[in-house]
Amino acid sequence: MDQPQLWVSALTQGSFFGLLGLAYYLVLIGAGFFNIAVGAYASLAGLLTSWLVVEKDFSLWPAIAIALAVTVVVAGATELLVVRPVQRRGRGSELAALVSVTALLFVIAQFAGFEFGYTTLPGQQLLDIEPVQIGGAIITANALIMIVLTFAIFLLLAMLIRTTRAGRLLRAVGDSNPVANMLGLPVHRVRLIAFLLCGLLAGVAGLLFSSQAGVSSSSGLGWAISGFLAVVIGGAGNIIGPLIGGIVLGMLQIFVPYYWGGNATNIVLLVVAAAFFSLRPQGAFAQRVRV
């Protein structure tokens, strides 16, 4: 583990998983629900951008704006058209909401494949700057943006959630939808905002990551699971949790294939996930309630 280049890769992947985890985290604390469509949002944003640029000759920034707008709208539709009606139906709704959002994930993935092709599209170069060399490692512009932006977003959201009124509202609503409703808090609006932000974050994550690894319509499911694992490993007690979980996951994804070969990755992933799920399902940073 003394190769700085691998650490850069691990950090980049980790940032990506961390951002996806953060997208989960927002809906989790706002609506108490794991929105597995996060992976689909990310791949949709990446695909749509590349497709607009490659096939439709859009210039980069308008394409990004359109892709992010579409992703945010889709995330809003997830809450309004899928989660809310299914949860309103009542009993056993946790599994029902989960399964219908999984169906949505497949709808988005299949639609993207149908519309933008089933092949992997190359991501777009976001900034035209030279790769930076630090120590023995070369950091490309895209990796640099990914890492810097991820940490910036985490800091910003941590401040917003901790200090602002909107952040308190989000946590209050997430702690208990019914009680928040009883207190007259705008539960529906807060949940919707959580979903919209989730879509935006996932879209940004997908854009940034596909600029390095490319993106295909089938990426969504794997990304959804990685983001979920980031939250589970890191824990949802603290906003830093998903970032830490993401980086741990990124290290696994990079170092395990390097030392033990590609087939070992999935097995190590299973072992790590099983260890966390069975020994510490609340994650590394759990919420502590003082009584």
């Binding site: 794991f34 597995i36 946790e94 599994l95 989960l98 699971i225 979920f228 694992l229 589970v232 590609g262 087939n263 070992a264 990755t265 999935n266 097995i267 992933l269 299973l270 996930a273 099983a274 799920f277 069975s278 399902p281």
Partner: peptide, 20 residues
């Protein structure tokens, strides 16, 4: 002790690892 997405995720990872 797991339910919902936790169970779904770990069983999916098992299938993935088994395939590997």
């Amino acid at each position: 002790r797991l339910a919902g997405l936790y169970l779904a995720c770990i069983t999916f990872l098992f299938a993935q690892a088994f395939q590997s």
